[in-house]
Design a protein around this nucleic acid. Structure first.
Lengths: 130, 130
DNA sequence: ATCGGAGGTCTCATATTGAGACCAATACAC
DNA sequence: GTGTATTGGTCTCAATATGAGACCTCCGAT
């Protein structure tokens, strides 16, 4: 329970959100997805071309990279600009909206970094206990 | 690019993290998973029994609820306490570690709430353009 | 007697994801 | 001029993850 009982859940209830009708859930589904976070972290370091992203994240398939980028573009979080080179190259970059997202994202990543010791310790203890 | 070029990615590179060897990625995979976020939001409102969670999140299957709870328990983010009632009941609650996680999580959720208008507008524009 | 709820597990159907071939146009090495 | 590589994808097929729902034991209430 967080400070004095005002929880996210209570706020959602007050706003009349149900699982079927929760705008935040639908956004979170995109933003908190596995590859999304990693792509955004990479783009936070600067604009990147498709193949540069693919090289930076060697374990994502082109298929999922494309899909992730399309979704983020549709949400207005990243921009996609085609350059008329031969062959044409495509540059992805964070929009202003996307840049505003990196701050809370930073919070999560920092938390993970700060707490990796206790987490790994907890995992080891759990596995040892069976 | 965020203020003066210090990005998450650069920090990871400096720390020598590769995709295969990135402790933060492995933690993020758990924390930023679809159901994890929703379960944590519910538990942030207070301890809950298994079936209470199932009722609060009607669109998660028991199977995935169990799996999500086990994973969070293994990470030391939630605790699991069995009460010797008949039939026995099980209560899940955030640990101190879990409570510390709700703050950055709050950040993300708040961002989603704050920006749902521009996001939905961007989606509509994208879909209209084809 | 049977119905229900507690907290799961198990199986099987479906959805999502990954691996990798393929594409057209061009540039560069040879 | 022939071969190879790069660009940003798409397509197919196999592997994996998820969802739906039956099933379990133990009890108390009807």
């Amino acid at each position: 329970m967080r400070d004095s009982g005002s929880s996210i859940r209570d706020a959602w209830e007050a706003a009349g959100y149900t699982p079927d009708n929760c705008p935040v859930r639908s956004i979170l589904d995109h933003v908190a997805a596995k590859w999304t976070v990693l792509v955004l972290i990479e783009l936070d370091a600067g604009p990147r071309r498709f193949s540069a992203l693919a090289r930076a994240l060697p374990d994502i398939s082109k298929r999922m990279l494309t899909q992730t980028l399309r979704e983020l573009q549709r949400d207005g979080i990243i921009s996609r600009q085609v350059f008329d080179t031969k062959p044409p190259s495509v540059e992805y970059a964070l929009t202003a909206l996307g840049q505003s997202l990196t701050e809370p994202l930073f919070g999560l990543v920092t938390w993970a970094e700060l707490n990796r010791e206790p987490i790994f310790a907890a995992q080891a203890a759990y596995d040892a206990a069976g």
